[in-house]
Design a protein around this nucleic acid. Structure first.
Length: 431
RNA sequence: GGCGCGUUCGUCUAGUGGCCUAGGACACUGGAUUCUCAUUCCAGUAAUCAGGGGUUCGAAUCCCCUACGCGCUACCA
């Protein structure tokens, strides 16, 4: 391939969709690995479906994902005159005609159009007898996708054209239009569709959200990119967790396959967790602070980061896991009842715990703390884990938390003791 | 209906005529570690390669047919 130039060309009819990330990514990778250019084109020629905020949403999400453009975005609605000019040129050339104040392309009725798709090296042939004339320029003066695609990609020098598989049936229109202008037909790569769990085209009803919603849910851009890349392509060495830079080196359009892939949120979550665990504590802290913009204690989270790192799959998981650190939890008797203490009285055990806590020398140390309560467990003839579990619930109100000793150190000796006492007074008999 | 594309474990996939009685990852199950959860580590369940015909000494891999799925069939993209 010589002078590679790719583009991502979404239409702003809604917020940027997760499925389009893969199209954008592949186009980006092809450009980068060939030292070519990558650009954005906003295809806003359908005024009925136009959503004003959508273009900005797309630009922001591409930025967040790190898929940077090499030039100013092309906005089709700003170059209406251009399409009118070219549509008229086709009339002059006898390839188009005007009817009902729209300009139509005249499709030949005989012959075939064939081309070879970069994906899967598929040779596809269409019989022109199945084709119909189609509109190039609508009566509102805006071009259809077909005209805009041919004009823009010729003018921009796009090669190869990377787009979704749903465009494949339109190939005869596009090839013939390029030829009518006397322009070279670019190479095409039609990417297989991304499907929902019911195997139909991925859409909102599958719970497939916009990119910015994944952002809000606490997904990392690198994990999203990595996961989406795997939908249709496997890195040569089979290693699935792979950075953008590595992808640029090893990606190959020819090894992308032509089979539609089902989007699997569970695997994306796993991938996100992999990236979180791989990060340094400092980096994770920074990312969490950026994510927790309105969190009142975001400046104090650093000591918690190593504690939660292995326990969160998404940045947002941090919140429910650490809420109890900052403020006294709401207690529920039922939660206490789940702890097995043989037939011992919960309140009785809590009193003993409070007593021990007062006894332990401050500042509390992990080992002494642990030793003290293992001994208490022995005295009570209860598994040590169950005693720790009681303390955990008394301190956090929850059965699942980050490691107890470290959490308590962050909460502080006084507050810990307060909470245990609070529980004792709040539930006189635990029944 | 017409045209087109596609079909390997539940999902993403490896595989381009013999290394495949089909390998990996996610998920799931069991076990080890453990103060809960998680992480980590081990082990396991799971595809007669959509079905049927060929070609070949030999096919998941090549050819044909059928079935099924999806896409397109707009002055939407």
């Amino acid at each position: 391939m010589d002078k590679v130039k790719t583009r991502f060309a979404p239409s702003p009819t809604g917020m940027m969709h997760i499925g389009s990330v893969r199209t954008a990514l592949y186009a980006y990778l092809v450009a980068r690995q060939h030292g070519g250019t990558f650009s954005l084109r906003i295809e806003d020629t359908d005024r009925n479906r136009f959503v004003p905020e959508a273009a900005e949403d797309i630009v922001q999400n591409m930025k967040w994902l790190g898929l940077n453009f090499d030039e100013q975005p092309v906005v089709q609605s700003e170059r209406k005159d251009l399409y009118v000019k070219y549509a008229k040129e086709l009339i002059e050339k006898g390839a188009a005609y005007e009817q009902d104040s729209a300009i139509w392309f005249k499709m030949p009725k005989e012959g075939k159009v064939g081309f070879v798709d970069l994906i899967g090296n598929r040779k596809v042939t269409f019989n022109l007898s199945d084709q119909k004339d189609f509109v190039l320029l609508k009566s509102d003066g805006f071009p259809t996708y077909h005209l805009a695609h041919v004009v823009d990609d010729h003018l921009m020098g796009t090669n190869p054209v990377i787009r979704a598989d749903e465009w494949l049936p339109s190939i005869p229109k596009h090839v013939l239009t390029f030829q009518a202008f006397g322009w070279e037909v670019p190479q095409y790569a039609h990417l297989p569709l991304i499907l929902g769990s019911d195997r139909s085209k991925l859409s909102k009803r599958h719970g497939a959200k916009g990119v910015s919603e994944f952002h809000q849910d606490g997904f990392l851009p690198e994990a999203i990119l990595n996961y989406m890349a795997l939908l249709g392509w496997t890195p040569p060495d089979g290693k699935e967790v792979i950075s953008l830079d590595e992808m640029v080196k090893t990606f190959d359009l020819k090894s992308v396959h032509s089979t539609p892939a089902v989007f699997d949120l569970t695997k994306l979550e796993w991938m996100n967790g992999e990236y979180i665990r791989k990060m340094s504590d400092e980096e994770l802290t920074k990312r969490l602070q950026e994510f927790l913009v309105d969190h009142p204690n975001k400046d104090k989270i650093a000591p918690l980061v190593p504690l939660v790192k292995e326990r969160i799959k998404k940045l947002s998981d941090f919140i429910p896991l650490t809420d109890f650190i900052w403020e006294k939890p709401e207690y529920d008797v039922e939660v206490f009842k789940k702890i097995k203490l043989n037939d011992l009285d919960i309140k009785d055990v809590l009193n003993k715990i409070a007593y021990k806590l007062e006894e332990i020398k401050k500042p509390w140390k992990d080992k002494e703390f642990e030793k003290a309560f293992r001994q208490l467990a022995k005295e009570l003839d209860v598994p040590a884990g169950n005693v720790f579990q009681l303390i955990r619930v008394a301190v956090s109100g929850q059965l699942v938390t980050p490691p107890l000793f470290e959490s308590i150190k962050i909460i502080g000796e006084d507050e810990t003791l307060n909470r245990v006492r609070e529980v004792i007074s709040q539930f006189p008999n635990f029944s």
